[in-house]
Design a protein around this nucleic acid. Sequence first.
DNA 1: TGGATTTGACCCAA
DNA 2: TTGGGTCAAATCCA
Length: 249
Amino acid sequence: MDINKKELVETLTRGRNSAKKLQNLLIQKDNDDNLVCVDDLVAEISQSFYGGLLVLNACNSGDRMPEVYTGKTPALASKGRRGCYKRRKTVDSRMVVRETIEDGYAWRKYGQKEILNSSFPRCYFRCTYKQVHGCKALKQVQKLEDGSNMFHIIYFGHHTCPPPNITSSQLACKNSKSNHNFPNSPSTITKDHIDPSSKQDDLSNKVSSASSAQSSPALVWNEILLDEFQCFKNDGSLSDIAFDDIIFS
DNA sequence: TGGATTTGACCCAA
DNA sequence: TTGGGTCAAATCCA
């Protein structure tokens, strides 16, 4: 347990440091060469929070420490002939763990695979507007094994299509009971796509803010981090820690 | 009827 | 050799 706490502190500290670096980069924003670095930082921040969540879950359940996401997820990519592809570079990936898989964008499911040693399939989505706007955004969704009803979501690439007509503040916190509809999102996905057994769960109508980060990076990422923090806090795991203490101290 | 989803096959990287 | 990412025909549904 103490080891887990130490691991959690280290993981969240790493995320905090990455967030600081990212914040500085976004403020400077005067060098295009920083873009790849920003992506790396974003991925690391996301991974740090995911790792922290895994540690917390392990603490709560008394389970053995899970392996923390390392960012070395093999990935997909281009095509040509059927089944012909190159695995995607992880530098352009962003990972989140959420109770909901909705994010306001319109996604079209193009595949689903049973994953070895995993109870739940991994689902593959691409932007609905791939044809119209040539949007290359992709998304992988897999339900977590820990019974927490949360989803491991990995975004690849960025939306080049127009963003959904919502602001990040309109996006719901996962623990809110309100529902949101997005008229310009013809095919927003729900939990049913990943876990059909969850049809009765009204959480399926919630949205997340993760993939809206492309529109205004600094502000939105701040909100994403705050959102993640709120969820940890609502889990009861971070009740005595302030958001600013973790992220922007 | 057209767009979205399902699902088995294909094929590459590890 | 095998796990996993993608394709595309079949099917579903509004």
